Each structure stands twice: as structure tokens, then as C-alpha cells.
Simulated assay, not measured.
Amino acid sequence: MPTNNNQFERLRCIKRIDQTTDASTFEFEHLEQTPFEFQAGQFLTFEINHYNNLLYRAYSICSSPEKPNSVTVAIKRVPGGKVSNYLLDNLKAGHALPAMAPAGQFTQEANKTTKNLLLMSAGSGITPCLAIAQDSLDKNLDVNIHFIHSARISDDVIMASLLTELAIKHDNFRLTLILEKSDNAEHFEGRLDSPLFTQLVPDTNEQTIFICGPSLYMKSVEEIVSATDFNMEYFHKESFVPEAKAGEPVFSDINHQITFPALDKQFMANDQQTLLDAMQGAGIKVPYSCKSGICGACKCKVSGDVVSSSSEALTAEQIELGYVLSCSTKANSDLIVEL
């Protein structure tokens, strides 16, 4: 994969598996069949030609880095989802898509961890958590994994057979399914709340929590956990947030020069534009996904004065080095930018 975040490389889809009625997994390989380099929990940003409009979406890798000859992502149908629904309707084995290098900070390497991993997910949020679980097991790490997944019914659980297989094969992997409707006594019926969380995880303070899923699920779990005396430095989250619908852009009379030395390119950005919008308007390909300052896909390094509304997806070291989230940052002076 390219090491420069601004570069794309075409990946060939070699297998599609329809996992549920509204979700499928897609396995990709390099056209040159070279190995992938990534960390469990990272994502790929794809470029999609959607009826002659180039769109960009990030999908978490759900396969293990210990099997680097291919990567697998899961895509779930979303009401009104332009790209996900298009890919589910059209992407098949043999098709190729441009993709940027794997990125993201939702990894064990980038965060504080303990030997007890509590992986919590809902919906398609299962994908990065599953990658973290497989990677830990493939490496025979000295960890205990408790995987708690929430879904509406059992048929909605993406890669359910793989989860069951991991639970059977590994003594240090425990699987808990919480289903809104279930006729299986082995599953918990209802929704995750504080009493159920306490029942399932009585040793909360010994855990490292990785959580991914819809925003309401994420908010609920974070409130449950933060209400305990849990050290939130060991609470790591990755959100799948749909893009907000764009309204009319607001501009002022103040413009700043943006310089990209590596691309030998300069352009002007209004101080009411996000840096991401300005870069895209100038024809610069930038990875992004949530456009909400959460996923971290659009980070870039800047020299100059900026106003940022979010740095949630950045590490303290990245902030110190001058990285910002371009979707949540506006220029307050002339800037020099590196991707």
C-alpha cells in the first residue's frame, strides 16, 4: 500500500460473502499480490466513482494483520446511504477500487491496554473489534478477550459463524450476544444497560475497553462506564457517524493562502471553510469518512494558526507535532500543509 496518505492504489475484490440480509464482506488483494501492512482496528479509505462523481468512504478492516496477503472489510446497507448501498448493489469479485493506505488510531499499539480486552460493538461496529480479537489470538498474546456484541436479532450479526468459531477454539475468548429479540437461552435478550453491564463485567477496572458502533449505542455505553470509577484512559472508541447533510456554505471576506509543498500547489481558503472542504475544492484527494472529527481519517499536519473544534481522534503526540483533523479545522492564517 502507498505510504503517503494522498496516494491511492487499486485493490482487486477477490471474494464477496453476503453475511446478512443487509451486510456483506469483501476480500481484497493488491493487483501485484504484495502483502498488506496494517494494524488491527485500522480502516481503508476507498475512492468510488458514483455515477461520475468521486466519493470517498472509510471501511474498517475486519481481518487479521497476521494474514497479510488480503484484507477484508464489511459493508452494511444504510437507509439513504449513497456509497454503501451502491457498493452492495454493484461490487463483485473481480472489480477493483482505488484505496489509500490503512489508517486509524483504534488499535492496541496506539492506546493504553491491559491483559483483559473488553471488545464491545453493535451493528457494523463489529468489524474493527473483530480484527483486534483475531490479531490477538493469531499472535497468541497473553490476553483475555470478552467480546460483547449487540444486535436486533441473531440473523443480523455480521460474521456470526466466525465469532462462534473463535469462542470454540480459544479458551481466552468469551462471546456474549445481546439481542433485542432472541429465543436462544445462551443469549441475553433486551438492550445493554447498567445492571446488565455490571453482571457481565464485574471486574470492569481490570479491563481495556474498545468500543465501536452507532452513535446512540456509543453514547449509552460511555455513560454506563463513566458512571463507575473506571479509568477512562483505557476506554477507546471508534464511531461510524453518517455525514451531516450539507447546507449552504457560509463565507466571510477573509481568505488565507494554503500551501502544499509536496504537491507544489497553492490555493486560497476562506476562514469559514473547513480545511477539508477547501482541499477538496482545490482538487486534492484527502481521506475522510465521518466528517465529524471522530474517525481521524482526514488528519493532516499544519504550520500556521488554525481554529479546531475537535481533536478527539488524535494522540497527544500528534497534536504536539501539529496534526489537526481537517474536517474540524479552519484556517486562521496562511498555512503550510502536509498530508
Rank of each mutant, 00 (worst) to 15 (best):
V71F: 09
S308N: 03
S150M: 12
A160E: 13
I168V: 15
L200E: 08
P35C: 03
A110N: 15
K76Y: 06
E186T: 14
N6F: 05
A122M: 11
V306Y: 08
N332F: 04
I61W: 06
V157G: 13
N332H: 02
V241C: 00
T274E: 04
M159D: 10
K169R: 13
G104H: 06
G41N: 11
G213L: 04
V73Q: 05
E223Q: 12
L339K: 02
T3R: 02
I75W: 06
G81R: 09
E222D: 10
Y323V: 01
G104P: 07
D135L: 12
H50L: 14
S150I: 08
A58N: 05
C298K: 00
I132L: 13
S308P: 04
E29F: 11
I75K: 10
C327W: 00
F43T: 03
L276G: 05
D183Y: 04
V221K: 02
D156T: 15
N270E: 04
P202S: 07
E180N: 09
K299E: 07
I209Y: 07
Q207K: 13
N52S: 15
L325E: 02
F43R: 02
L162G: 08
G125Q: 02
D142C: 15
V201E: 03
A103G: 08
I284K: 06
S226Y: 02
L119Q: 09
E9P: 14
E66Q: 13
K169E: 08
P214S: 08
V78P: 05
F46W: 05
A185F: 10
G247P: 07
